[in-house]
Computed example of a mutant assay.
Amino acid sequence: MTGGTVGVGIIGAGNISDTYLENLSSFPDVTVHVVGDILEDRAKAQADKYGVAASGGVDAVLSHPDVEIVVNLTIPASHVEISSAAIAAGKNVWSEKPIGVDRESAKALIEQADAAGLRVGIAPDTVLGPGLQSAKRAIARGDIGRPLFAQTSFQWQGPEIFHPNPGFLYARGGGPLLDMGPYYVSALVHLFGPVAAVAALGLRSSETRQVQVGELAGTDFPIEIPTTVSVLTQFEQGGQAQSLYSTDSALKRHGVVEINGTEGTLVIPDPNTFGGRIYITRPMTEVVVPPAPTVQDVVEVEQEGVLVGRGLGLLDMARAIREGRPHVASGELGYHVLDTLLAIEESAERGAFVPVESTVAGVGSVPAGFDPLARTV
């Protein structure tokens, strides 16, 4: 198709499909035509809930003539398989993160799409929200001088306290690093550029965990990955970061991202959200002797843009298809993030710095005037 709304089909009708269906149905530039799942009753229930015309199995999406972009919401271990099938069917792909669970198949997927003249887009698209994009513009303006290093933290006790079937989150391709790391690494790459090398330590607090809620409550499941990972990151352009990813902490501390520059520290919203408070703390101008309280100037940074939710990256890709321009959350960017995460795993196993072989050029941005709720195609 060359004009009109961009047709979308969704494969995977699990928990995350709700937020995608809710948001995509509010974007005038896209139309969801079909929902597919290996459990066809579940696909039909989601299609009926959101007024989607058709539902069925995976083939119902791949064979639908009006679908230009397949949204891949399957589990990480199935991402490449489903994305590859969509490309083979002549469809562009927007995939939940990560792009895959190993370098070889992920790289082959990008090569397959390039050969077919099709696009691959990879979540997270939170980095395209007004929060991080406004922070990115603040850094580009020089609001904190030259960015030097970042600190990030994601820590809590784990998703088994709310998820009815959390085993896949502790399987290969999951865990706090592969499940939540894409949000933080993607944010850092947007702000500092590509990663050059990483060093990490990892630990596993137990060999099994137990489901806490739902029909499987009380059931044990195995732990295949480290549940705490501490990371040092070196960026190609010279910046550094230190990060913590843990599901072994009784203290819940999510979304900590602080960018320290020569003229101040920029605090940005949780990278698993699309927006929030952004502010800069300036260096002290006088010495404060305890017990007098430390007083530092805090400058609020305006958040520019329309706040929506998941599906924003797919919308940018849909508009890019119509406009003939690159989309921001590209497969190449998704591959670099995966490559970085796997290098972190390897470093934790080897106890040494590991170079990140891939790179990505010209990490794009969303303009301040980007309005998901406007009709543009």
Rank of each mutant, 00 (worst) to 15 (best):
residue 11 I to W: 05
residue 13 A to D: 08
residue 13 A to C: 07
residue 14 G to V: 03
residue 14 G to H: 01
residue 18 D to F: 10
residue 21 L to F: 11
residue 51 G to Y: 14
residue 54 A to D: 15
residue 76 P to Q: 06
residue 77 A to W: 04
residue 85 A to M: 04
residue 85 A to Y: 04
residue 91 K to H: 05
residue 96 E to V: 07
residue 97 K to G: 08
residue 98 P to Q: 13
residue 98 P to A: 09
residue 110 I to D: 07
residue 113 A to S: 11
residue 118 L to N: 07
residue 119 R to A: 04
residue 123 A to M: 09
residue 123 A to Q: 10
residue 126 T to Y: 01
residue 132 L to P: 02
residue 138 A to C: 00
residue 140 A to P: 03
residue 142 G to E: 11
residue 142 G to C: 12
residue 142 G to L: 12
residue 146 R to I: 12
residue 148 L to G: 10
residue 149 F to G: 01
residue 150 A to T: 12
residue 153 S to K: 15
residue 156 W to D: 11
residue 168 F to K: 04
residue 168 F to T: 09
residue 172 R to A: 13
residue 173 G to H: 01
residue 176 P to V: 06
residue 178 L to P: 02
residue 192 F to Q: 00
residue 194 P to E: 06
residue 196 A to I: 09
residue 208 T to Q: 14
residue 219 T to G: 01
residue 220 D to P: 07
residue 222 P to R: 00
residue 227 T to D: 04
residue 238 G to F: 09
residue 242 Q to G: 15
residue 245 Y to Q: 04
residue 247 T to K: 01
residue 253 R to K: 14
residue 256 V to A: 12
residue 256 V to F: 10
residue 258 E to T: 07
residue 262 T to A: 13
residue 266 L to F: 03
residue 267 V to S: 02
residue 273 T to D: 12
residue 278 I to P: 03
residue 280 I to W: 01
residue 283 P to C: 01
residue 283 P to A: 00
residue 287 V to D: 15
residue 294 T to K: 13
residue 294 T to Y: 12
residue 297 D to R: 14
residue 307 L to D: 08
residue 311 G to V: 07
residue 317 M to N: 11
residue 320 A to D: 05
residue 320 A to L: 05
residue 331 G to H: 03
residue 334 G to R: 02
residue 342 L to Q: 00
residue 343 A to T: 10
residue 344 I to R: 04
residue 346 E to S: 11
residue 351 G to S: 13
residue 353 F to C: 12
residue 356 V to D: 09
residue 362 G to D: 11
residue 363 V to K: 01
residue 366 V to A: 00
residue 367 P to A: 09
residue 367 P to I: 10
residue 367 P to L: 08
residue 368 A to C: 02
residue 370 F to R: 06
residue 372 P to E: 05
residue 375 R to C: 00
residue 377 V to S: 09
